[in-house]
Design a protein around this nucleic acid. Structure first.
Lengths: 337, 337
DNA sequence: TTGTACGCGTTATCAC
DNA sequence: GTGATAACGCGTACAA
């Protein structure tokens, strides 16, 4: 089923079929002829061959998506948003997991480049220039999602991480907490860094100087890191009454330590997570956290990519979506006395 | 950077470069020449253009993967397994979400066909012939994952669903339960049907005739369906002491009804889930369930696809992986009296 | 307005 | 063993 088949049925030359079927060149062809061609194509169930088209146009209508790990529940909704938005523009995503390995990220981007992707959306988290440089050189569009790159002019779709952490801390403050610990994410991720900075800003804005010994930096956004850091805080008998964690998994790690040590949450210590991951309401206790509109972030990233693909002149743009506080049962006023 | 560039540098004809670079045809070329070509390609950082190759060979080294919904935590590990296995064969997955809509499934498969995928792995669940027929006609290989098709000769990678439900029921029986309810999944999914059948077989093998009024069929594998059915059982004051649910989400629906009615689990009613979804151990109470090796199932599906792609003569094959029982805190002996 | 001719990068099939 | 040539399906100058 090719252009020629349609041409034969419609009784015209293949080139005319090509023109009639292509939105942009349809004007060049007689209205009646176009109608006849469309009808023939419809009847035959003609599907243009994107491979052949790509060979000619040097475009694949394909966009690579680099994510750390699909099994991290953060990413599926982002991916669906990306996919849904790209689809409306006729683009198909090509997904690869990098396991947060910068080398593998570069390798995957090479493989995608070989597959002639028109652009790459990177959800991988490290603040790293190499990918950007490699793609710039190859003339492949780059859009960041869930990560920003302040020093470079590159489009990105993220949540307002600073605002999110502000909501978290202000919630704890409003409950009466003053000795608040922060379990920060890795600071070479923009998410980790911005939440960390915002924690400090918000505390200071309330007239509280954060105790450096109550701020611990995780090496990864994982439960085990959360447990390690929380265990460390408890072992040192720090007198904190609340924890603002940089994500939900770190918060879950705290739960583990509490269970082990018989600490009641929220009665003795309050915890706020970040992300509102699936089933956060099912945990014990249901987790108070910051909700992030992940699906919308994905859609925004798809949107930004389409912008760049369809109008190369448009300048890079940053989209920041608002998070919101979801109060459940892991926070309460501090125990008196 | 094309074959011609490499040819120019190596001082040979482009066709020779093609032969030298292609594993299968390398034997046709002089060893020294081949070495020279490889070296030139290396130096230039030559990457073959799969688009052009596909145009010529009618193969894209691309495999479509049809899943219902990426945000269902069941699928990411399957997908990673598929991806990891396909990658070793030089294939790239192309993923689409069908939202369990058979029409959309067909549409997506059309789009994939247009993109010249060499095969399609379908994780969508309905026992439906249409996809199979459409692909057969188009000469596209089909492999099922997490779903079987008994009437058709098609490769599939699944868990042994019958064995899984048998483990679930036997666990409850061994605790002393005899009045066991079954929340079945939709029976037009092979998973729903086989677990349903196995529930009955296992009960009968123990000398117990299942009470038809204790077997309810859900319209979807969701929490709300679980809650609806469990609510129905409770409203009718059925005297059951345990529930064998066809998946974890149905089990979670039961949790909701229990919470609403003040029923204690497992003290008054035991519940067993199915799938061992992420964070099942975090629920309240931690959910006893059947663990399914999802990643391995995905790898097996990738394996089966490679088999068919690399050796079209090999007959379809079914791979069934063993599930296992994970005992947590949602099951206990029935309350006496 | 439509047809002709060529090229995108690769591989298959010849001939040498 | 290697080179020449055609062809895959499409898009687009250019000619008509």
């Amino acid at each position: 089923m090719t252009l020629r088949d349609v041409a034969r049925v419609a009784g015209v030359h293949p080139a005319t079929v090509s023109r009639a079927l292509n939105e942009e060149t349809r004007a060049l062809v007689n209205e009646d002829t176009a109608r006849r061609v469309l009808k023939a194509a419809e009847e035959l169930g003609y599907q243009p061959n994107p491979i052949a088209r790509g060979l000619k146009t040097n475009r694949s209508f394909t966009v690579g998506v680099l994510i750390p790990d699909l099994t991290n529940p953060l990413f599926p909704p982002i991916l669906r948003g990306i996919e849904d938005r790209l689809e409306t523009g006729g683009y198909t995503p090509l997904i690869a997991n990098t396991d947060n390995d910068p080398e593998r990220e570069l390798l995957d981007s090479q493989a995608m480049r070989a597959r002639q992707v028109d652009g790459i959306i990177a959800a991988t988290a490290r603040r790293d220039h190499r990918l950007h440089d490699a793609l710039l050189e190859a003339g492949i569009e780059l859009v960041l999602v869930n990560r920003r790159q302040t020093e470079l002019p590159v489009s990105s779709a993220t949540a307002d991480d600073r605002m999110g952490m502000r909501l978290s801390v202000e919630h704890l403050l409003s409950l009466g907490h003053t000795r608040i610990a922060h379990l920060a994410g890795p600071l070479d991720y923009s998410t980790g860094l911005e939440r960390h900075d915002s924690f400090h800003e918000t505390m200071r804005a309330a007239g509280l100087e954060p105790d450096p010994e109550l701020v611990l930096v995780a090496e990864a956004f994982t439960e085990s890191e959360g447990a390690r850091l929380c265990g460390q805080l408890m072992a040192e008998r720090r007198d904190f009454t609340a924890v603002a964690a940089a994500n939900d998994l770190l918060a879950l790690g705290c739960y583990d330590v509490f269970a082990e040590r018989g600490v009641r949450c929220p009665d003795e210590i309050s915890v706020v997570g970040f992300n509102d991951m699936p089933f956060a309401a099912r945990f014990q206790p249901p987790l108070t956290t910051i909700h992030i509109p992940h699906y919308e972030i994905g859609k925004a990233a798809g949107e930004l990519m389409l912008e760049r693909l369809q109008n190369g002149e448009s300048p890079p743009r940053e989209i920041r979506l608002e998070p919101s506080l979801v109060v459940r049962d892991s926070t309460a006023p501090p125990a008196t006395g």
